[in-house]
Nucleic acid binder design. Sequence first.
DNA 1: GGTATTGGATACTCATCAGTATCGGGTTGT
DNA 2: ACAACCCGATACTGATGAGTATCCAATACC
Lengths: 184, 184
Amino acid sequence: MLDAAAEVFAARGIASSSVSDIAHAAGLTKGAVYSNFDSKDDLVLALMEEHVLQRLHNALVAFDAADDVNDAVHDLGASLVDAIHADLGWQHLLFEYCGLARRDPTLQAALADRRRAGRAAVARAIERIAEARGVELPMSAADLAVAMLAISNGLALETGMDPDGVPDDLFPRLIGLIVDRRVP
Amino acid sequence: MLDAAAEVFAARGIASSSVSDIAHAAGLTKGAVYSNFDSKDDLVLALMEEHVLQRLHNALVAFDAADDVNDAVHDLGASLVDAIHADLGWQHLLFEYCGLARRDPTLQAALADRRRAGRAAVARAIERIAEARGVELPMSAADLAVAMLAISNGLALETGMDPDGVPDDLFPRLIGLIVDRRVP
DNA sequence: GGTATTGGATACTCATCAGTATCGGGTTGT
DNA sequence: ACAACCCGATACTGATGAGTATCCAATACC
């Protein structure tokens, strides 16, 4: 059900997907949706919650699983780039959700909380890498986490506007320039 | 009329603003809108076109007006940061528009064209700065332009999700790290 | 001064969609 | 085996909003 919702939302956007559409995509009807969720908003909330948790979990597991730290860095970069391209639909869902939250203080607060948690997780990962590698960071890990998320989202946005204008390797190159302070 | 539309759209979003709302914000009625525009989509298109041109124009004029190149760099950074904060509503309008374009090939193509033009303008500005200052760029001016736009948009997005999590000076610091290759 | 044109108002139509009320069939528990 | 219950289907309601048809008034033109 949530899977079907994710697909439909990604394809048509949250606002212009009807509850019936989602239900039929799952092979069911509206009644089924309303017997599982209080409202459309509730469905959207549940979906975002699930997807965000899943994503964070995947990223952190993949990160911890890598034996070598350089591998971890490489994998992290690669997985982010993959995410930008493969999961562009989801990324745009997040953008729309962000727009919705702007007009709803409750959503806004909830989103801010989750975002802070996500950023903190990324920041910890960065700190771990830096420590293991003995790299001196050019700014606080927290700010660097914000920067990395902002850059990946910003590139996804640019890719959405003009898919051919954004080179695949721009993200890792930028990260390299920011983090690696040696003169080229 | 377009001013009123911009305000309403920025406040409530494109999708959830009715044509009547916009008309009343301009002190008129729906009839007035439909005698000036073919459809709601047409109105939106006209608005975005106007706003984008205005913005690009302002940026380039401000840039050319600066006598000193360092001032230009400083001003450019400052104006971008200002834009992120003051004009956040407009920024989010762009995000929503980008989402709409994703489902409409015609819009998508038009947006891609305009975006390419905007990026090219930024790239030329960067080249001019670099040349005047004798700075060696760490990547092509075109890629750097994409990166700058992506970072400013990405930070605007993060600011929208959690206004307190994004330091004001993060943008210039990032640009500094990317462009300035001296060891600190 | 009289007629055509245009910008805007009013009052509709029509479609869509969130949400509700109610019914049935299958499952669970006793 | 029977009762309570729950999940999902069907068939509504009510509201909203894009777009249209028509009318009115002011301005422009002859």
